[in-house]
Design a protein around this nucleic acid. Structure first.
Length: 272
DNA sequence: CAATCAACCTGGGTGC
DNA sequence: TGCACCCAGGTTGATT
């Protein structure tokens, strides 16, 4: 579900509600969700700790704790994070809660139970948990860097965009949207891209992610921001979910195919 | 190294 | 109304 823009939107809404709060306890209803320490060890690691800020790396939300440690959450497909009053009834699929010192709690709701929680004593996500490529909205994300990352890989560009070790944060929606904006067919091999195409792709990735953050993310079904509200970028998608509808540039019907196991939308004319 | 598939889960949509 | 089946914003691990 949530890709970089959705996690960033959640981060923005949670940060003021979490920063400065002290954790008083946790509730774990689904132990398998706790990935890193043993679930029974998590509470003693968190209780009494003060939250110093909320960051994001790729699709991971990073809750910073006093003393250089991090509580990280990955929402996978249907995860939702909200901060609510402790006496407000939680959603049906709320499997993890972090109780705070002002009678509110951070709630992790996840219908499909794919979401993961990690704790580690560092700011960087340990490589043993996840290795992530550069942040696409950072200054280090340039056409030259992209060329470097793609070099020697005989790999379809759509698959490359979904590979978090190559670029962090892009998922199925924004991969399709970026390839459309860049005018690239999803099956193009990354080591065949010209400098001009790399430049276009780099720019397209930045553009689609930035636009979506401005629209508070894309809600196809489950995604909600930290206030429980849907985003609006679904109204601005150019190809994703628009099979059979006219291309916004040339009017040809948008095509959908299965590619690398994922539904893939593109304009057969503009991305020929 | 790359590709494919299954697995992890629940529920909405579709077609019979 | 029921039911079987496909599909979904993600990631990982086994297998070829």
């Amino acid at each position: 579900m949530p890709e970089l823009p959705e996690v960033e939107t959640i981060r923005i809404s949670l940060e003021p509600k979490l920063t400065g709060r002290t954790i008083t306890g946790v509730s774990i209803e689904l132990p398998k969700m706790i990935q890193n320490p043993a679930p029974e060890e998590l509470e003693s690691l968190l209780r009494g700790r003060t939250i110093t800020g909320v960051d994001r790396r790729g699709k991971y939300l990073l809750i910073r704790l006093e003393g250089e440690s991090t509580l990280a959450i990955h929402l996978r497909m249907t995860g939702q994070l909200t901060v609510e009053d402790a006496d407000f009834p939680p959603g049906k699929a709320t499997y993890f809660k972090v109780h705070l010192d002002n009678d509110t709690e951070l709630r992790f709701n996840d219908q499909r139970k794919f979401g993961k929680v990690f704790y580690f004593d560092s700011k960087e996500i340990p490589a043993s948990l996840s290795r992530l490529g550069p942040e696409p909205l950072s200054d280090e994300f340039t056409p030259e860097r992209l060329k470097q990352i793609f070099a020697r890989h005989q790999l379809a560009v759509k698959k490359a965009l979904l590979n978090q070790e190559m670029i962090a944060g892009i998922g199925n929606i924004y991969a399709d949207e970026a390839l459309f904006l860049a005018g690239l067919h999803p099956a193009r091999l990354v080591n065949s891209l010209t400098d001009a195409e790399l430049e276009a792709l780099c720019h397209a990735i930045r553009q689609v992610l930035t636009e979506s953050i401005r629209h508070r993310g894309t809600t196809k079904r489950d995604y909600r921001d930290g206030e429980g509200q849907p985003g609006s970028h679904q109204d601005y998608l150019r190809v994703y979910g628009r099979k059979g509808e006219p291309c916004t540039v040339c009017g040809a019907p948008i095509a959908k195919m299965m590619f690398g196991g994922r539904g893939t939308h593109f304009c057969p004319i503009c991305q020929g």
